[in-house]
Amino acid sequence: MSLDLSERIAKLGFSQKELFVGHKACAGCGGTVAVRLALQTLGPRVFVGVPAGCMSAVAFLYPQMAFGVNAMISTFAGTASLLTGIRAAADAQGLRDVHVVGFSGDGGTADIGIQALSGAVERGDKIIYICYDNEAYMNTGIQSSGATPFGASTTTSPAGSVYHGNQKNKKDMFEIIAAHGIAYAATASIGYPQDYIRKVKKAAETDGTSYIHVLAPCPTGWGCATELTAELARLAVDTGLWPLQEYTAGTYAISKDLSTFKPIEEYLRVQKRYRHLLPEEIEKIVANRDHHWERIRNRLRSTAN
């Protein structure tokens, strides 16, 4: 491989033209990286829906608009339903080769927006729904969401003397969406941008609904140094906590198989949200991870046979 990074990126069909600039996101924001990369992959013939949340708060404060493409804030619960309507109108207008894409956080996806998302997937609407997962309601000040992992401290699941952070396990949106029989679903991480870009391209080429759940660290909410965003996004994958997977027309695949996991402490110890964890709680996180991978591998084995 003699190609340098920019050549490799160009090979992916990735535009150098920024379509999301001038926003006022926090330093080290992973969510904005997820949006930028997706838009540069999809190009300008795109209609974007963004619910109330970080991306709308940082990009749509009149008169400063950060999207270089058609974009609209939806209601918090209504990302997918807004996209459904946009796609229907595009179809009615005979618009070809356009993408209708949503960028919603984990709260907007796993909690308040899951009904509309489920409906759109069930109908098979040709939309690309991208959940940028920073594992809590960050825009409102780091409250626990259905996608907050076990043990993480948030302002509504703080690390106290009785309860040590969030007591529930992270809702597995990839499995929930795949169970709909969606045309295409994937998990991704902004720490593996080529993999993410490939998945966005695949979503763009999919006839039917696509769902990409991309891990996007939030230094503000996670309590880590702002320069660690990309590194933590990689570590989440390398420690096995965030498996990169795909579901294409009924078939599951692992995008990045791991024979060994990096030590989980490397990921946890640099984040303030996990600082309170006791050894037995870290063991539970490890056990959950191992169980998750066992299920993933068992499923692949059973479908391979």
Binding site: A80, Q93, Q115, A116, G119
Partner: peptide
Amino acid sequence: LNMESEHSALSAVMGASAMGV
């Protein structure tokens, strides 16, 4: 469009209306 709730029905027509139909 057969939607999954009234909230979604109105949300969808807002998206469509924004497109100018």
